[in-house]
Amino acid sequence: MNYKRLTLFAGHYGSGKTNIALNYALWLRGQGLRVTVADLDIVNPYFRTKDGEAQLKAAGIRLISSDYANSNVDLPALPGDAYSLVDDRSVHGVIDVGGDDRGALALGRYVPKIREEGDYEMLFVLNKARPLTRNIDDALEVFCEIEAACALPFTAIVGNTNLGPLTKPEDVVAGAAFAEEFGERVGLPVKMICASQKLSNELQNTVRNFFPINIMQLYYMEKEGTSLGKINL
């Protein structure tokens, strides 16, 4: 898979940007590169890149994120050192952009330098199972709003259709076709199709540009296979 110096993940909120950004950073690191991840999410109060900090650190990846991420205040603040990512061309950067146009607005201030350098990929993450991007027209609305908000055109599509732990291989296959169709509509290629690595066996030979990801597990979610008891309905 080809890569650029800067890779930006944007899209509808809840489309899976953060998990993919973390996995992509680990993959870049696996290519022997110096990698830095920047969390530019100013929208989401919980479930942030910061949750993966230990994993990144262990892999030798630097994380730039707001001092207020995962704190008790809701300050839509950007980390000051995020500029180092656009200035220091000796590192490869992965940028986790906040969801929707509201999240992408914050990216705007870095865009002139990103465009000047011209060594970037701006990726639209698309999950067909999200209720506000279930068809091409709705997804296009989100796509255009984000481009208008940050003034950085997308360069490729990332398919990430999933239903969390209920995802079946056929969901991913259908999502891949949806991503292709969307790519044709906007005139962009599909860079990769993401799905949990647990589905690798079923998907690696059937889905083009398959990119298996390891999904962050949170301790307060039930382990797989746990069922509900009796409810008196």
């Binding site: 809840g14 999950n127 199972a129 999200r130 209720p131 279930r134 999933n162 239903l163 969390g164």
Partner: peptide, 14 residues
Amino acid sequence: ETVLMKGNEAIAEA
């Protein structure tokens, strides 16, 4: 059909 939602979104849609 099954969709993937945030709890807050599920309240609104429901």
